[in-house]
Design a protein around this nucleic acid. Structure first.
Lengths: 143, 143
DNA sequence: CTGTAAATGATAATCATTTTCATTTATACT
DNA sequence: AGTATAAATGAAAATGATTATCATTTACAG
């Protein structure tokens, strides 16, 4: 289940961060679409609604949200960083390389593989990342 | 099977690229260790052997090697890009977040999952990425 | 050995991200 | 509601990785 704007706001307050109009606007921008966003994209989207905000604030807020694991950074992609909303349970992503739409999926269990790798390599495994890339139906038509 | 220096050199020639001392040195640096490397790291390593090279050349060569899929860019990591040697077959990575050592592994089949996702989402899936992160035995002792 | 296109490297340019710091503001507490 | 205060904002400058420019050098085919 993807996090809601309300949940994110609550988490911020819980950790002692103030709820400013700028932060509200960023949270709204992130939660109202399910594509992935880079800092510049969020900046533009917030600006396009009447709201005043600086790019610096976007960067700072994204850093906080990442630290609290409310959003997560997506691998690869272009020059800028890409972020997507976190979810309440462990999941993976399927990202459209055309428009950036992100679909979450769960239920694929990698624990067995993780244990096997750990046993064979001697590593203590801390995390993993499973990402699929492709073209969504809309972008298939375009190309 | 990880690519050898000889194979990489051959591939470069095959594609019409000249085999300069600088390129040889970079290839040697990449193939002689199995940790992942960033541009600055390769630059330093090549310099530390008597060889003269500029950072710009490192960037250019890495770009060529990436384009020919002889090395691949690793996700996440720090500020700089990280690269690791490609291999002759499809595989995934287990990366030590301490020292950057990369272990390749194969044999985990994601085709079924890929088909299922494709069917359910309507995406045409083009690629995927499965990465594990942890601490190797050496780095476990240090920390 | 020679010609030539490709490669190199020093320098400068670009661009995302961070830092700085003066000003503004959310929030807890009268 | 008013106020104090630490946190947040934003403009401008700094940083740092990556890329472009261009004169010089070099690999290599003939």
């Amino acid at each position: 289940m993807r996090l809601t704007a309300k949940e994110i706001s609550a988490a911020l307050k819980e950790h002692g961060y103030k709820l400013t109009p700028q932060r509200r606007a960023i949270i709204k921008a992130i939660t109202s679409n399910n594509d992935c966003l880079n800092p510049q994209g969020i900046y533009t989207r917030v600006r396009s609604q009447r709201a005043g905000i600086g790019l610096v604030t976007v960067y700072r807020t994204l850093e906080i949200l990442t630290r609290l694991e409310l959003i997560c950074e997506l691998p690869a992609g272009g020059i800028q960083r890409n972020y997507t909303l976190s979810a309440s349970e462990h999941h993976h992503h399927l990202t459209c390389s055309g428009c950036g739409t992100v679909i979450d999926f769960t239920g694929h269990n990698l624990i067995d593989l993780e244990n096997k790798l750990s046993r064979e390599s001697g590593f203590i495994i801390e995390s993993h990342m499973l990402e699929f890339f492709g073209l969504c139906q809309g972008c298939q038509k375009v190309s």
